[in-house]
Structure formats: structure tokens, C-alpha cells
């Protein structure tokens, strides 16, 4: 899957979690938590939705790799089929 498609898939998940925010303004190199009102439960939501929608498992030790949109794309890209 192309990076742009991975980014869109992650964006769609975040949009369904950060319901009150404009996710189109996300800057890829900044921490998601610094741009959006996201807490640890929201990140667990992101992990759960990756599993439900895309059958991607993210082990707990890899959670820091979801810190920015850029790191999400880099980490998740190879896992998307």
C-alpha cells in the first residue's frame, strides 16, 4: 500500500475518534497528542480500530511508534496488505 493510502487509513481512524477536531490540519512531523486532544484511551481506540478494520496488531512495546502521523505511516506501512 502506498504511503498516502496508509496515511488516509490512519486519518480515517483518528477522525472517528477525535470527533470534534479538524484532522485535515494534522502536521505529519508533530506529535499527534500535541495537535489533538488525545489521551491514552484514545490511543487504545486507535490500536483497536487498526485491529478491527485492517487486522493489524500493534504490540504494547510499539505504541511509541504511533506518536506522529509520519511515524504511524512508517511503522504501519509494511503491515498493510
Amino acid at each position: 500500500m502506498e504511503n498516502a493510502q496508509v496515511r488516509e487509513a490512519v486519518m480515517n481512524i483518528i477522525a472517528d475518534i477525535a470527533l470534534d477536531e479538524d484532522v485535515t490540519q494534522i502536521k505529519d512531523d508533530l506529535a499527534l497528542r500535541d495537535q489533538l486532544d488525545l489521551d491514552s484511551m484514545d490511543f487504545l481506540d486507535i490500536v483497536m480500530e487498526l485491529k478491527k478494520r485492517h487486522k493489524i496488531e500493534v504490540p504494547q512495546e510499539d505504541y511509541p511508534k504511533l506518536a506522529t502521523m509520519e511515524s504511524c505511516v512508517n511503522y504501519l506501512g509494511p503491515k498493510f496488505h
Binding site: 475518534i17 477525535a18 470527533l19 470534534d20 486532544d37 484511551m41
Partner: peptide, 8 residues
């Protein structure tokens, strides 16, 4: 309440 709070 916000939509996010309602979802949670």
C-alpha cells in the same frame, strides 16, 4: 458535551 465525550 462534546461528540468525543459522548462516544466514550
Amino acid at each position: 458535551q462534546s461528540r468525543k465525550a459522548r462516544r466514550r
